[in-house]
Design a protein around this nucleic acid. Structure first.
Lengths: 250, 250
DNA sequence: ATATGCGTTTCACTCAGTGAAAAATTAGCA
DNA sequence: TGCTAATTTTTCACTGAGTGAAACGCATAT
């Protein structure tokens, strides 16, 4: 397993992982909503793996149903992924509960809406509205980005789950119960995030709306935040920490 | 890599697969809607792999988000599965289109409803109604069973996709546009399956309802079939092959 | 105290995985 | 219809990544 060379065999300035399992899972990352169907050539190039290695892994992934392969040599995610997602949902019923809510928020505000949770040092998108928007700006459902990458949702998640990210912003979040980030991750975007709590006060995650800065005023954003608060409470959840001191502990 | 011994190191009379990737994916099969959270001990036992081997694979699966691990040592499917499922859905919009339909069928008939497709020599469940029923009898969403295992849906899929399973039953399906299987897979169950076609006549899969034999009469089943036909046509799909001769070709 | 169950680490052996290269297949083109 | 280029697939000898028995550590019973 030589995997020599200073970085990049692909155009991605990333070294492909070593370890067969790592590599196999790494291959699955080549697929996205933007590019759901790929052929060997693309997958090998994008992953940085040798074509022979890639082919072997793909075969295995196909036999286990994680990928499907068509006659014309294209691969795409297979039905096994559905099975696992169904199990994931069953273990975190919050997804099912909030799906409709996120959709409503997007429809009412006309902006992109999403729901995030923290998982270790990652911020994971569990729900995205289904409106079609420019893919470049938004993460896929299930995708993770490091907390350190910031963004409105990250600061809310950090503040309420005790992750040390930016204490100043955390303080703002804890007193105001929302955070607005202007161009923090992307110059042209503004996003507002609110924490979400179970009825019993348990923190579950953050709802966020994202808009193009050039198309919204501060008042628009405030109105969006109100929409979020209303929809969240309709879902029998809260955007306010239950009591001042209970939630500081964990 | 000794993997010696005539079969079974687990209680499953199955030999665990060789190949790191195979084993890793094999581990994911340990999880189900019935048993969504497992600890190392269980996973190692059920998969038949050594604990050390299992642990290594689990670590990798966790780092890629396919599994999550809690403090108390339990593992369960992670958010990466959501991402892949979202991509899968985007490539086969039939799932989104029929989800509501399957749910309606289940609600109207009071029986278990599902949607299957053929994938190679496997029959894959893409949709299951969300009513809670006895898990022992029904397959999870995304789960595959060999076509050769039979069942009403298998015969419908075989008939309309040119899979050689049981030519006599296939002929019945092709003339009557449905199939009823009584106790074929499970002595106590009866299930009825109907083919589903796009408006342009393309065969897409089979809808099936399953009931306990002791609780339904033949007339009940006929009524169920009518419900399926109605719901499918409401979804702008058809339960009849477009024209007598067009569909014989493929 | 002693035992049992579980997760984790260690380490020497060895076979599964690697990737360059060749072969087979498919697509494009004149 | 041939000829060429592009892509997928197979082959094979080398080797280091993966293996698993055993030891360890840490709980929680007994």
């Amino acid at each position: 397993m030589k995997n020599l060379s200073s970085k990049s065999r692909n155009g991605n300035d990333t070294v492909p992982p070593s370890g067969v399992l790592d590599r196999g899972l790494h291959l699955m990352n080549c697929f996205s909503l933007e590019r759901p169907r790929l052929q060997l050539r693309d997958i090998a190039a994008q992953s940085g793996l040798d074509k022979a290695t890639t082919l072997r892994a793909l075969k295995t992934l196909v036999t286990y149903g994680y990928l499907e392969k068509s006659e014309d040599g294209y691969y795409w995610p297979g039905p096994a992924t559905l099975r696992l997602a169904a199990i994931f949902r069953s273990t975190s019923n919050i997804v099912t509960r909030l799906e409709r809510t996120v959709e409503n928020i997007a429809l009412e505000t006309g902006q992109a809406a999403a729901f995030f949770i923290r998982s270790g040092d990652q911020r994971v998108c569990l729900i995205r509205d289904r409106q079609k928007r420019d893919f470049r700006y938004f993460v896929d459902v299930g995708a993770s980005v490091p907390m350190s990458a910031g963004g409105a949702a990250a600061h809310v998640l950090a503040a309420y789950s005790g992750f040390d990210l930016d204490s100043e912003k955390a303080e703002f979040v804890l007193t105001n119960n929302y955070y607005i980030s202007r161009g923090e991750k992307n110059e042209h975007l503004v996003s507002a995030a609110l924490p979400i709590f179970e009825a019993d006060g348990e923190f579950v995650g953050a709802a966020a709306i994202t808009a193009l800065r050039s198309t919204v005023t501060d008042d628009d954003i405030d109105r969006c935040i109100e929409v979020v608060r209303r929809e969240i409470s309709l879902a029998m959840l809260s955007t306010q920490a239950a009591a001042e001191n209970d939630n500081a502990a964990f």
